[in-house]
Simulated scan of single mutants.
Amino acid sequence: MKRFNVEDVIEVLKQLVNIPSPSGNTDKVITAVENWLEPLGVEMQRNRKGGLIVTLPGKNNTEHRMLTAHVDTLGAMVKEIKSDGRLSLTMIGGFRWNAVEGEYCKIETSEGKEFTGTILIHQSSVHVYKNAGEVKRDEKNIEVRIDANVKNAEEVRELGIEVGDFVSFDPRFQVTDHGFIKSRHLDDKASVAILLNTIKLLIEEQRQLPYTTHFLISNNEEIGYGGNSNIPPETVEYLAVDMGAIGDGQTTTEYCVSICAKDSSGPYNLEFRKKLVQIAKDQQLNYAVDIYPFYGSDASAAIRSGHDIIHGLIGPGIDASHSHERTHRDSLENTSKLIYHYLLSTMK
């Protein structure tokens, strides 16, 4: 892995997070991934759900591997155009309304027009609403203030905005002098950036993998079914690359690669987990084994859909998941190196 440079991962990540892609509206970001991969000459195709499958041939074509990371993100959809020209929302994915209050956003109409706005509590002015700080943050009170001269629902509709239009959140991507990456949607675009950079490294190094390996850039993970299909029957090992959860009782940090032992779907394959831990030890990587209590992945979705596979889950440690997320370049590097050396390892 002589050519690895974590700055390459960060640059891809920056490009990805700045392309809005809430679940259900991911064509633009998938197209961007295709355009990024095209010069590498890799085999790729979209599935009917709109995800992208990249295949690298290996020495063994009877036993396959599959890795997945999801490019879809949290977001919202216009639920109602209110009489005062504001928009009420319905969530896409699992987050809390207080995590997006005050956030800048973008509304994309079905005709492709875009308008900016701000997500606010209706009772936002403390000079008018005495109980502004006590009002419940929910879909009844959270709304979008559109950056357009609109005073009623009719004027909003004249812009082309309708119920069902997608709303995305401003990522506010930053890299600090101390190596922290702050942005929305590090879950899971950080992992997508890692996989894309790994594919590029393997091609540049002219590495032939021991097994034919598929990389699924899934686009419906945040709503539960991104990686549950298009798994070739030859697939033995299925590794989801997704964020490692940080908080009280967790051992994962922003500097390590997190290896999941169990999430809300149950335990991940023990022997697969032990193998990943051993690779991390052999390569002297900073890693942590953890349990994510309120979590599901593309790998658990694949198991639930009936696929006979060995499943695992790893990813960079990300603080404040589904809120104002942050990770560190060290975590991206440790995760990249674990994936790279896993891909070169044998199953036995």
Score class of each variant (00 low, 15 high):
2 K>N: 15
3 R>L: 15
4 F>V: 01
11 E>M: 00
12 V>S: 13
17 V>F: 02
18 N>L: 09
20 P>G: 05
28 K>F: 12
29 V>Y: 00
31 T>A: 13
35 N>L: 10
37 L>N: 00
38 E>H: 11
39 P>S: 09
43 E>K: 15
45 Q>C: 05
46 R>M: 06
53 I>E: 04
54 V>W: 05
63 E>K: 15
72 D>A: 08
72 D>F: 00
82 K>I: 06
100 V>K: 02
103 E>T: 14
105 C>I: 05
108 E>S: 15
108 E>G: 12
109 T>M: 12
110 S>E: 13
117 G>H: 06
119 I>Q: 08
121 I>P: 01
124 S>R: 13
124 S>L: 12
132 A>P: 00
132 A>D: 09
133 G>A: 14
135 V>C: 05
139 E>S: 10
150 V>E: 08
152 N>Y: 05
153 A>T: 05
153 A>E: 13
154 E>N: 09
155 E>P: 06
158 E>A: 14
160 G>W: 09
165 D>W: 02
168 S>D: 12
177 D>S: 14
179 G>E: 03
181 I>A: 05
186 L>D: 02
189 K>C: 04
192 V>C: 13
196 L>M: 15
197 N>Q: 10
198 T>R: 04
201 L>A: 13
204 E>C: 03
208 Q>H: 12
210 P>C: 08
210 P>F: 02
211 Y>W: 06
212 T>E: 02
224 G>N: 02
227 G>A: 14
234 E>L: 11
235 T>M: 10
237 E>W: 07
237 E>S: 12
238 Y>V: 02
240 A>W: 01
254 E>A: 14
259 I>D: 01
265 S>V: 03
266 G>H: 03
267 P>F: 13
269 N>C: 10
270 L>V: 12
273 R>G: 11
276 L>Q: 01
277 V>M: 07
277 V>W: 01
280 A>P: 00
280 A>M: 00
283 Q>M: 13
288 A>I: 09
291 I>S: 11
294 F>P: 05
303 I>E: 10
303 I>V: 15
306 G>E: 08
313 L>F: 13
320 A>H: 14
320 A>S: 15
323 S>N: 15
324 H>P: 08
325 E>P: 01
328 H>M: 08
330 D>E: 12
330 D>L: 11
332 L>N: 01
333 E>H: 06
335 T>A: 08
336 S>A: 11
337 K>N: 05
347 M>I: 15
